[in-house]
Design a protein around this nucleic acid. Structure first.
Lengths: 217, 217
DNA sequence: CGGGATCCGTTACGATACTG
DNA sequence: CAGTATCGTAACGGATCCCG
């Protein structure tokens, strides 16, 4: 496996670790939290079981991924792939989506990005549990003075607010291509008490205008 | 060619365009300026001629590359791959180089990065023509009030200064892992008049401390 | 049942020879 | 020098099977 380029070039060195087919998508999923073997198979439509095993092994031997029982997770080195994935995501937004898609879309990386962005802009006394549904996929946004900011893939038990939106318009708004007002009016639906809706809208307004340009914490 | 992932995920959409083997290295080379077919063959050791033709065709049909006679160059969309390549380069610096390399290394992307960095930090009245030799490969750094800042792959005719160094230590110094003094003392050799050496050292000092973190102009 | 390994048909890659 | 054609080899994709 893995035909190495064997070049000194640092880009080629990266590609020797993460350039194989499926590898970057495996890392994408791991950025949203630990995964099990079956989670990958379910989330990566079309990957062959033997390939997944091979990729996970190579990622481990390259020091990007570690295994604890049935849980696969990123090593510290593995988390350093985040910026590459982020830039790939921004680039991908420039291309039209395919005609017949296999899946409605897997946006797990959004969790990581959002977490970092919210940590940067959230007031320290903010308290809020929201469900964000992007293109049909739920994320939990949990902010409190005690627990800090957490964003994970999956729906919360009792959200104060439920926000339904879509990835592409959201990115367009974050990039400034669409005004925040237009985005909210046309691509966001909010449910919950007025106070909580306002709290959430204020937080996300900060995220969209200030915090969304850079994936780092 | 090109097994598409067919996922809505923007990362997968990127990989459908640039994820094939060799494609990102082809783009890397194009970021340093137009290339001809033979240039690619010479600069990408191991690529098969038919693969190169296939890749260039797909890059054109995806709107990333355009062809004018025998010259291949990036489209405006193609230039947007720069940040991905930059992050891959930073990531690649974290991995140890391979034992038996095919090539001393192709650092053409450095030209683009350096050009952007120097444009940001150079005083408007600076005038200087330098040859920078990194790991055996020459770059021309040309700065003047009339012509602006240009950095291209290849040696200049009559450099005021010749600087010899190496990519890895340079990146380490730019990242702050090594002090600028240590870097200069151990990994840089300068040739030229004292005044020009000083002018060059001052410019690169600014680049290393201020300008090297971000590839954008 | 979930985590993998094995098998095999198909596709892409790599090397080289070939044509304008 | 730019690009095409051919062909052996390696990787991928799908399914099945094994093992705890």
């Amino acid at each position: 496996m893995s035909r190495s380029y064997r070049l000194l070039c640092p880009i080629a060195r990266s590609l020797d670790r993460v350039g194989d087919r499926w590898t970057l998508l495996i890392l994408r999923d791991l950025h949203a939290g630990p995964m099990r073997y079956g989670d990958f198979l379910a989330g990566l439509p079309g990957i062959a079981s033997n390939l997944l095993a091979t990729r996970l092994q190579k990622l481990q031997s390259d020091g990007l991924v570690e295994q604890d029982g049935q849980q696969y997770s990123l090593t510290e080195l593995g988390t350093r792939t985040q910026r590459v994935l982020w830039e790939l995501a921004l680039l991908g937004g420039l291309f039209p989506p395919d005609d017949d898609l296999k899946q409605p879309g897997h946006l797990r990386l959004v969790a990581v990005t959002l977490r970092a962005a919210i940590r940067r802009v959230a007031r320290p006394d903010l308290e809020l549990t929201a469900e964000l549904i992007l293109d049909g996929e739920s994320f939990t946004i949990d902010v409190s003075p005690e627990r800090g900011v957490e964003v994970v893939y999956g729906a919360p038990d009792a959200p104060d607010v439920v926000a339904t939106s879509s990835y592409e318009p959201m990115m367009a708004a974050a990039a400034g291509d669409v005004s925040l007002e237009d985005f909210r009016a046309e691509h966001v639906r909010l449910e919950g008490s007025t106070a909580m809706q306002q709290r959430f809208a204020e937080l996300m307004g900060l995220v969209m205008t200030q915090g969304f340009a850079d994936p780092d914490a």
